[in-house]
Design a binder for these strands. Structure first.
Length: 590
RNA sequence: GCGCCGGUGGUCUAGUGGUAGGACCUGAGCCUUCCAAGCUCAUGGCCCGGGUUCAAAUCCCGGCCGGCGCACCA
């Protein structure tokens, strides 16, 4: 992934990705996908959509990348994404100031404190640099927010942020999305889109960037009722790296099935297990090497505070394990947050099997009395009576026996209401169900990292007659183009015939490239480098002018990985290539 | 953000205080009946700004970008 890496060199040279705005010196952490990369990325997204949206019966949305500030107040990103950095005056190292405080004092949750307060604490406790031990008192703490900030409309009265994850765009629309799902759990909502994080130090090519594409599924479930179809993935095998192995001296990967890890309690939640199985199949299908892939459980310290359990999909790239995806059980954290901060309900009405009858204390205050008596506070008094009835119905019974008045407190002031003006009753009501806040299961994937991993894992170098042959062994389904069409030579009508074939194949919906420049071998090599799985060559036999007249109307189809060739009739060529691309047949079936 | 190292055509690189050469790639032509063959020609470059100097791509300073290490990665 670093400079001098042959995969990065190839990616730049052949148009997979390049650093953006190079004409202006470049900008760190932003990449442009070139023609090959954009096609590859689109194909990867299409297969994800097929697997996680269509096959799962979920619905896809497309939310804005800019959201107003309250959304991120509710989600916790406004505070949680704010880092406090303090720089050591001696050694120059920067550290998280809140971590320094929490690690060296009894103070907890320094993260949520004001900057000034943390500065005071650092001075009070005479805290020192974790690296060199120099005193940090008096050092200014710098605020660094990972979110890109902007303004919505003129002026700065309406701040907005570029979303740091796509998920919030789904959560905030939950009330309407539940309606679209006819208020039936479970339902899943997917989104593929850009997210933005103003990283301090982007590194390692496409693996750590400031703008990236996420593919996320938010599955809303009833935690008491809904279960995944685990049977459909129980035989999927994958390497698992649970906490116990990570903490062991000689911990190792456990190669086993999804069914087993769930049975053994290694993966606690059935939904997480289910999506690990789905995701493993998908990563394999797009060309991630399963010998360099694993599912790693989050260590206790890594877990977000609301997450019961979390697993990452990881791939080995250049000797490092990088995170490709996270699978988290988020509980009702997200929906509860938005319910608390917004004016909407983020619940689903869940019907009981049988309606139940309950006794419920109610009040129906006489507003024609309360109004004149309490003026502007009348409504608040009525509310207070209402909640008192729910909380402590005995207060009303006592009032009847006692002095005949009910006492409530509104903003510190006591009000007394005659019991006969309260309208207190114990009602028998029939309830057919209750409002529940669904729990969220979230598989969240990084598309750019998947793309980079696929490039890295599919790259191969062969020696052929002393020459290096570079090949991207991309699965046909995701390759930027499915087929290259060449005339054996650019004369004698071969090129014209080849162009006719290009048109036919494109009409059939295939991604085709045409090339008649230079020797045929060079053209094969060009396609090898960008991962085109098949090449079609028009030769003299095609025209009926070769040694074997029976081959008229046929072309050679060459397979990238073996460089073997088979003759195929032009009449069935588009069907054959489509079947090869979709995996309906293999090259050996020809 | 800190430290060290670096930045020459699309890619990989040589090089000097007097404005640059190669290889590959790419394009045109010739040749060529299946895996980067050959010949001819052509396109294309010293990261940006400032300083020193008669003269800077070269030396110095700053910036930008990259690699590595540290920190960060909710």
């Amino acid at each position: 992934m670093s400079e001098g890496n042959p995969v990065v060199e190839l990616a730049k040279r052949r148009g997979f990705f390049l650093q953006s705005a190079g004409a202006y010196g470049g900008v760190s952490g932003f990449y442009t996908f070139g023609p090959e990369g954009a096609a590859l990325k689109q194909n990867i997204e299409d297969t994800w959509r097929e697997r996680f949206t269509i096959q799962e019966g979920n619905m896809e949305v497309d939310a804005p990348t800019v959201m107003p500030e309250p959304v991120f107040e509710a989600s916790g990103h406004l505070d949680g994404f704010d880092d406090m950095l303090v720089e050591c005056p001696e050694c120059g190292d920067s550290h998280r100031a809140d971590h320094v405080v929490e690690d060296n004092t009894d103070i907890e949750d320094a993260e949520s404190m004001a900057i000034e307060r943390v500065e005071e604490i650092v001075a009070e406790y005479e805290l020192t640099c974790p690296t060199c031990g120099a005193g940090l008192a008096g050092q200014a703490i710098q605020q660094f927010n990972l979110m890109f900030e902007t303004n919505i409309g003129p002026g700065s009265s309406s701040p907005g942020y570029l979303r740091p994850e796509t998920a919030q765009g789904i959560f905030v629309e939950f009330p309407q999305l539940a309606e679209y799902a006819r208020n039936q759990l479970p339902f899943g909502v997917t989104q593929i889109g850009r997210a933005y994080r103003n990283e301090i130090s982007p590194r390692k090519s496409l693996l750590r960037v400031r703008e990236f594409t996420q593919a996320e599924l938010e599955l809303f479930i009833d935690p008491e009722e809904d279960e995944p179809d685990l049977e459909s993935v129980e035989d999927v095998t994958a390497p698992f790296y649970p906490v116990s192995e990570q903490e062991a001296e000689d911990g190792e990967l456990i190669e086993t099935t999804v069914g087993e890890v769930f049975e053994d309690g290694i993966v606690d939640d059935p939904w997480i297990a289910y999506y690990l199985g789905i995701a493993k199949r998908w990563y394999e299908s797009i060309g991630v090497d399963m010998d360099r892939f694993r599912f790693r459980q989050h260590l206790p310290g890594e877990l977000a505070h609301y997450a019961a359990d979390c697993w990452d999909a990881e791939a080995e790239v250049d000797g490092d394990w990088i995170e490709l995806a996270g699978f988290a059980y988020r509980g009702d954290y997200d929906l509860s947050k938005h319910a608390a901060h917004s004016d909407e309900e983020f619940t689903i009405f869940k019907q009981y099997d049988e309606p139940i009858t309950v006794e419920r204390p109610t009040v129906d205050p006489d507003m024609s009395y309360l109004g004149p008596e309490f003026g502007g506070d009348a409504a608040a008094v009525a509310d207070a009576l209402d909640s008192l009835a729910e909380r402590d119905p005995d207060a009303f019974r006592d009032a009847q026996a006692d002095d005949g008045v009910v006492r409530v407190e509104v903003e510190g002031q006591e009000y007394t209401v005659p019991i006969e003006k309260v309208g207190f009753e114990i009602e028998e009501v029939t309830e057919s169900g209750e409002h529940i806040t669904p729990h969220v299961v979230e598989p969240s994937l990084g598309i750019d990292r998947a793309l980079y991993t696929v490039l890295d894992h599919s790259y191969r170098e062969d020696e052929v007659d002393g020459e290096t042959r570079r090949v991207l062994e991309l699965p046909p389904e995701v390759a930027p183009r499915t087929v290259g069409v060449f005339p054996l030579m650019d004369r004698d009508g071969l090129a014209e015939r080849a162009r006719e074939i290009v048109d036919r194949l494109r009409d059939a919906g295939l991604a085709v490239t045409y090339d008649d420049s230079g020797a045929i071998g060079r053209r094969y090599r060009r396609q090898d480098e960008v991962g085109t799985p098949f090449c079609v060559t028009v030769d003299y036999e095609t025209l009926g002018e070769g040694d074997d007249p029976s081959l008229e109307g046929t072309v050679t189809v060459r397979e990238r990985d073996t460089t073997e060739q088979r003759r195929v009739a032009i009449s069935g060529l588009s069907e054959t290539l489509t079947a090869l691309r979709d995996g309906a047949i293999t090259f050996d079936d020809l």
